[in-house]
Amino acid sequence: MNGDGLVLECRDLRRAFGDLQAVDGVGFSIAEGETYGLLGPNGAGKTTSISMICGLLERDSGEVVIDGHPLTTKSVAEKRAVGYVPQDIAIYPDLSAKENLNFFARLYGLSGVERKKRVDEVLEIIGLADRANDRSEDFSGGMKRRLNIGIGLLHSPHLLILDEPTVGVDPQSRNAILESVENLSTEGMAVLYTTHYMEEAERLCNRVGIIDHGKIVAEGTRRELIELVGQRDRIRLRATGNIEAAAQATASMPGVYEAAARDDGLDVLVDNAADALTGILGTVAAAGVSVSSVDVDEPNLEAVFLHLTGRALRD
């Protein structure tokens, strides 16, 4: 980690495959304990970007710095700081879960008691302690996915890179994986998480980079991205009484952009529904209106992506 608390800094990464410019000037940074999401549709350049960040793939230009040290495909010591979980399951099917973990632990320099302890810990984390000695070929898809992630965690990396780790996973295993990733960032690990699932990015990531056609088109927290494209929260009140008066009173409140009366209630557009809701309910009540239900529609990253690129995430 450098003096700014940054674990990863990558600048102006570029890589072309023939005529196809797969990655075109990607750059971002991740701090300790932060989970950064790279959100984009298939073919946007996510995997190529992280392949260069991990030192798997030569880059045409750009720079990757891990813990203050440049990382290239030929780096050895610098790669110890990175844990990599590829998109496709990458385990030895003929080996047991424990043997897979032991092999990669040794590869990352863990030995003796430390290795055994860490392997046991990871088996607990990924929930495979009771199947440790079974051949991984016999595991379900979800179990294989968890083992795939476990291998990346073994050496307690400063930066964990997960490339779409929930693709093809059943809902239960998916939730287990997401919980594991949430716990990792709370333990101080920097996490780079690529996905094309908007819900995962919203749930896990402190900041999100939206990538399309090899470029990061926008970056920030969820709130920053939503504000960037002018999207606002919508509060829908089902109410009876003098709705017109309530709408007029609400419209003049700070942070409220629009308040419109409907037959059965009123719609209010605000910057932040959570902050504004209490005040709005008070104003509406003061106007003599009785509220029977409240719905809040928050704009999501899907809407942001659509706004920025003109197409949906799953296109």
């Binding site: 495909t73 050895v76 590869l107």
Partner: peptide, 8 residues
């Protein structure tokens, strides 16, 4: 890919 990403 895992071997390439490893410190070897």
């Amino acid at each position: 890919d895992r071997l390439f990403a490893a410190p070897i």
